Simulated assay, not measured.
Amino acid sequence: MLDAVTALTRGTRLAYSPGLRRYVFAPIVVNLLVYIVVLRVVLANFGGWLEGWMALVPEWLAWLEWLIWPLFVISLVIIVFFTFTLVTHLIAAPFYGFLAARVEVAATGRPPLDDRGFMKTAVDALGRELVKLAYIAPRALLLLVVSWIPGLNLLAPLLWALFSAWVMAIAYLDYPMDNNKVSFADMRRRLRARWWQSLTFGGCVTLVTWIPLANLFLLPGAVSAAVLMWNQHYRELAVSAPR
């Protein structure tokens, strides 16, 4: 049985194998540019964000400042990397979708059901990213509100970690599913049906995104890993709704 760590290991090797590695350079360049911009913004504003957040702590919770401060820092770091990942996916989606299609051919010997050229894949992938964003954004906003509620925000790091794992599962496993004509709604149903595989895979990918600089080269491997996970765990699930 293919697990998340094995899938990521095999997927990374596959992404950089001869015949496929030429498809990973464009998303790496995109990720690098976004990484530089996000890093500059964070370094310029991190201190101010943290001071503003701590100023909201009521006096009756002042005695817990030793615990609240590191939790705020952890939450802020998670939010920053979460935002970074969403932005990079939105920009690099056309390349990731095409990479997933080429990996599926190499890994399984059969093309995806919707084997499109690069331009068609690029347009469709961008549209699909907007659908994902419409699903993720309101939930992330709600979680952000929770993160600012005194007392309740003590749970924020755990909630962000679980949410990030779910979002990463959606973000990456959707590439092969979209290529195989699985609707966004049915994709989520399949992920819920294999919730353990989905969350462990998403959690591993989340950890990969937190590795500075190395994540630029590992994320294409996550796309390849998603194809392997799709083929092993999700392909044969019954389609519960039409596209």
Rank of each mutant, 00 (worst) to 15 (best):
W63C: 04
L64E: 06
E65H: 11
W66P: 06
L67K: 00
I68Q: 04
I68K: 03
P70Y: 01
P70C: 08
F72D: 03
F72N: 05
V73Y: 01
V77E: 01
I79P: 00
F81D: 03
F82L: 14
T83D: 11
F84E: 14
T85S: 14
L86E: 13
I91R: 07
I91E: 08
A93C: 07
A93S: 15
P94T: 00
P94C: 04
Y96S: 09
Y96D: 05
F98A: 10
L99Q: 08
A100D: 11
R102N: 14
R102F: 03
V103T: 02
E104F: 03
E104P: 11
E104L: 06
G109D: 05
P111I: 03
P111K: 02
L113H: 10
D114C: 03
D114I: 07
D115H: 13
R116L: 15
G117T: 00
F118E: 10
K120I: 05
K120C: 07
K120Y: 05
A122C: 10
V123W: 13
V123Q: 11
L126E: 07
R128K: 12
R128I: 00
L130N: 11
V131Y: 02
A134C: 10
Y135W: 12
P138D: 03
L142H: 02
L143P: 05
L143Y: 08
V145F: 15
I149Q: 05
P150N: 04
P150D: 02
L152I: 15
L154G: 13
L155S: 04
A156Y: 09
P157V: 02
L158F: 13
L158C: 01
L159S: 10
A161W: 11
F163R: 04
A165V: 10
A165S: 12
M168G: 04
M168T: 05
M168D: 14
A171I: 06
Y172P: 06
L173C: 13
D174H: 03
D174G: 12
D174S: 13
P176G: 12
